[in-house]
Computed example of a mutant assay.
Amino acid sequence: MSWQYDSRTRIFSPEGSLYEVEYDKDGVVLAAEKRFTFKRLATLNSTEKMYKIDDHVVCAVAGIMADANIRINCARLSAQRYTLAYQEPMQVKQLGQSLCDTKQGYTRFGGLWTFGMLFLFAGYDKNFGFQLHLSNPNGNYGD
């Protein structure tokens, strides 16, 4: 009966584990803050920080939104092409890695604009369950 022990966020079970950590194994949550410097400015829908890539993948963005919008559209297109070709959804890790490959390619040559944004991909696939992956501006990738 865990309800006797976990009425607060940092409570240890009789076995010595944190219930807060045990509960976090069943999903991924992404949150974004939208900041406004001037209260009198109208809100724009183009400054979203959370995007749906496919039915099983979402993405949180930090950085230059013009660059992010281009890469988000490419990620959506990649996911749709994969689904069309293989009749199953693209794995979250594979989607993140393909985007990182493109971003890293822009860092190799002079005269190309490197993408100035960071992505957090969260999603679910049948092989690996819930996942969270990071894509840095320079093309580095992390789980």
Results as ranks from 00 to 15, higher is better:
residue 73 N to P: 00
residue 116 G to F: 06
residue 121 F to L: 14
residue 44 L to F: 06
residue 121 F to E: 02
residue 87 Q to N: 05
residue 25 K to N: 12
residue 95 L to R: 01
residue 80 Q to W: 01
residue 83 T to G: 10
residue 30 L to N: 04
residue 43 T to S: 13
residue 102 T to N: 07
residue 18 L to M: 14
residue 16 G to D: 03
residue 132 L to D: 08
residue 100 C to G: 13
residue 101 D to Y: 02
residue 125 D to K: 15
residue 2 S to L: 10
residue 132 L to N: 05
residue 47 T to K: 13
residue 98 S to Q: 01
residue 91 Q to H: 07
residue 139 G to L: 08
residue 58 V to K: 10
residue 114 T to G: 07
residue 92 V to D: 08
residue 130 F to R: 12
residue 40 R to D: 10
residue 116 G to W: 03
residue 13 S to F: 12
residue 51 Y to C: 03
residue 66 A to V: 14
residue 74 C to M: 05
residue 33 E to M: 11
residue 134 L to K: 12
residue 10 R to N: 09
residue 87 Q to A: 12
residue 118 L to N: 11
residue 68 A to M: 09
residue 141 Y to L: 15
residue 28 V to C: 14
residue 90 M to E: 06
residue 31 A to K: 10
residue 7 S to W: 06
residue 4 Q to S: 00
residue 55 D to E: 09
residue 132 L to Y: 04
residue 15 E to F: 07
residue 115 F to L: 13
residue 118 L to I: 15
residue 95 L to Y: 01
residue 31 A to L: 15
residue 138 N to R: 08
residue 12 F to Y: 10
residue 82 Y to W: 05
residue 51 Y to P: 01
residue 31 A to I: 15
residue 135 S to A: 15
residue 122 A to S: 08
residue 50 M to T: 05
residue 96 G to W: 02
residue 20 E to K: 13
residue 81 R to D: 00
residue 79 A to I: 06
residue 38 F to K: 15
residue 30 L to D: 02
residue 34 K to F: 02
residue 15 E to T: 12
residue 126 K to Q: 13
residue 113 W to E: 09
residue 5 Y to Q: 07
residue 87 Q to I: 07
residue 105 G to R: 08
residue 50 M to K: 05
residue 62 A to D: 04
residue 99 L to I: 15
residue 15 E to H: 14
residue 63 G to L: 10
residue 29 V to N: 05
residue 68 A to Y: 04
residue 54 D to E: 02
residue 13 S to H: 04
residue 74 C to Q: 03
residue 70 I to R: 00
